[in-house]
Nucleic acid binder design. Structure first.
Lengths: 192, 192
DNA sequence: ATTATATTAGACCGGTCGGTTTAATACGTG
DNA sequence: CACGTATTAAACCGACCGGTCTAATATAAT
């Protein structure tokens, strides 16, 4: 009972990591197999739907990890704007660490496959939705209106996803650092 | 002299369009060839470096098209904040048109290949840089400080790239519409 | 011990990938 | 026209792709 979960879980974790880094088509089944040391027969035993099924579960896994990452910071910081700022700062830290590369968590796979695989598109959409709601909830708890919180959630998610992409492409944490720095200015309530 | 440019140009345009939609590994050379009706020999005549070289030129082409798209709107609108808002609104319009799909202009290819191909990563980085500077210039001309303009350029680029990704994944223009709607609130100068 | 089941192992498949090669053909220029 | 170059054409290559299949092997229950 323990070995089973380990094998399947190892497959999901390895796939999640590789997909984050190189997207869907950039990762072969054999890459995942070699890196996890698991034979091909096992993969098709646990994932009879093959690569696509494995990818859907890998996306679900990444979604959960990221939610945990967000909530851990949010629990420590009451003010929602400061919380978002801290969240982005921690993201910068994590991305600096080259041992466990973060990549573009869902973005790489989403941008590749959104038009060619509905199951994958839906899985990515679900991840984005839940991340957005995790942000929104923080603002609702702080007294923002539902519409305000929803809109801010979308904007925060967009600017973070975009910032990660810019930082990866520039090989520099500057874009994300600038975004973190400017978050209070961006989100500050002004007239009303 | 005319046919040459047409053949090479057709190759670049077709590659640009397909890469935007499905990323790098998602597009085979044969897809590009079939769609443009050009034989493989010609491709390797014009692009002896093969797929990677073609991709670099396709990215350069996309970069130029997007700059033209931005500047056309910017010329019509003096106020930089309104100009950015109009730009995003036009982006929503263009993406609604399914005849000439926009995709995730550089994002798809950047997120896939940033870690595995330096030439492609650099080409994408160059595109992002120039887009950012196109935004920044608008704010400098309106009297913003250099640092302010630079930071705003990064943020606008990030939120747009992220918004496109969210809209494509959601199959909805809502994320981009919300971003456009909130742009004045985000960029409004407050204290200072 | 026996049986049923879950899992591992990896050879194998057809198809497609990016890329190479060679020969034919169009074309510009003297 | 003749000649050298630019271009087209497609057969072909080895490598790798995702996926299938069958047999061996653990594992658990009776």
């Amino acid at each position: 009972m323990t070995k089973k979960l380990n094998t399947k879980g190892m497959l999901i974790e390895t796939a999640s990591r590789l997909f984050r880094m190189r997207g869907y088509d950039g990762v072969g089944l054999n890459d995942i197999l070699k890196e996890s040391g698991i034979p091909k027969g096992s993969l098709y035993h646990y994932f009879p739907e093959g690569k696509e099924g494995l990818a859907v579960e890998a996306i679900r896994h990444t979604k959960g990890v990221v939610i945990g990452f967000i909530e851990e910071v949010f629990e420590r910081t009451e003010d929602p704007i400061k919380a978002v700022q801290n969240h982005i700062c921690e993201l910068v830290e994590v991305m600096r660490d080259e041992k466990e590369p973060v990549g573009f968590p869902i973005g790489a796979i989403a941008s590749e496959k959104h038009s060619t695989s509905e199951p994958i598109r839906k899985a990515c959409h679900s991840a984005f939705e839940e991340w957005k709601e995790t942000y929104s909830r923080k603002f609702i708890r702080a007294g923002y209106s539902e519409k305000q919180a929803e809109d801010l959630g979308i904007i925060i998610l967009a600017v973070i996803e975009g910032g990660i992409l810019l930082s990866l492409t520039a090989k520099s944490d500057k874009p994300l650092r600038v975004i973190a720095e400017q978050i209070p200015m961006l989100l500050a309530k002004k007239s009303g």
